[in-house]
Amino acid sequence: MAEVNMQEPETPTKLEVQLAYEGMKESNKFLRLLKAYPLVFVGGIMVLALVIIAVFAAKLAPFNPDTQFPNGLALDGAPLPPGPIFRMGTDDLGRDVMSRVIWGSQVSLEVGLMASLISLFIGTPLGIISGYYGKFVDTVIMRITDVFLAFPFILFVVALVAVLKPSVSNVFIAIGVLGWPLTARIVRGQVLAVKEFEYVQAAKALGAGSFRILFRIILPNIMAPVIVLTTLNIGNNMLLESVLSFLGIGVQPPTPSWGSMLAEGQAVFQYAPWLLYYPGFALLLAVLGFNLLGDGLRELFNPRRVR
């Protein structure tokens, strides 16, 4: 055995230098990342803020969002502009806009997240199977995605929600169920690329079963783009929820949702523009946050990145 052992090329000097170098790396890693990818951090902070607002909505909102305050309306019955008590003003039913915007984040986030997770859970396995097994299975799955992608998505969702009856959970189910083809396609593309790597062949040669190869070896190696896609999806799905609610087939009143607030505000935009500004701004920031985070993550995961 001794003879087999060939010299390990580690001279003390080299090792020391290496260790010193890596120590430096650890402590500065965060700062360096921050400097190289400010997007991730800006987006991350926006998303984090949104999550905190949604989770602690009950604590953060000054009032109950559904209470129609008698003092929330001007004498002529018009909504109140932002003021000392109702800091973002009130709507035409005398409800506090700030509280409604804060509670609205819950709906947005819930729909955005759940819909993306549903797409992820349907799309990923189908994409993996399609990419890995190829042949007939692949053709069938891909043709189905073609059909889905060829139809106008929004019309589909509208139809599905109409059939299911509008409610928060039905909205995210509809968006999620119809959103899987994109996930499936991207996952499939990744699988096709990763499958060719010799480490996958090596696992097969070692006797690994299909399940192990698919979920222990291929899946972790395609996680990065899938995470990016899901992040971007959350933002898009939030937008979609607003559109549906705006059209009146999404979240039903009185549940506060940015989309329905926009719809309600639109009628009185002339004399109560704050009813559009605040929910609109909230939506903008939330979607932007997820997009920044997603794009940032894509950069971060890019193996050819230069740091």
Binding site: M6, Q7, P9, T11, T13, K14, V17, Q18, Y21
Partner: peptide
């Protein structure tokens, strides 16, 4: 016959003879 070890990397160049490690 073989030369043990590897070529040193750019950032970890030995200060004396560059072949000294091998």
């Amino acid at each position: 016959p073989s030369i043990p070890g590897n070529v040193p990397s750019l950032e970890l160049m030995p200060k004396g003879c560059r072949f000294a490690t091998r």
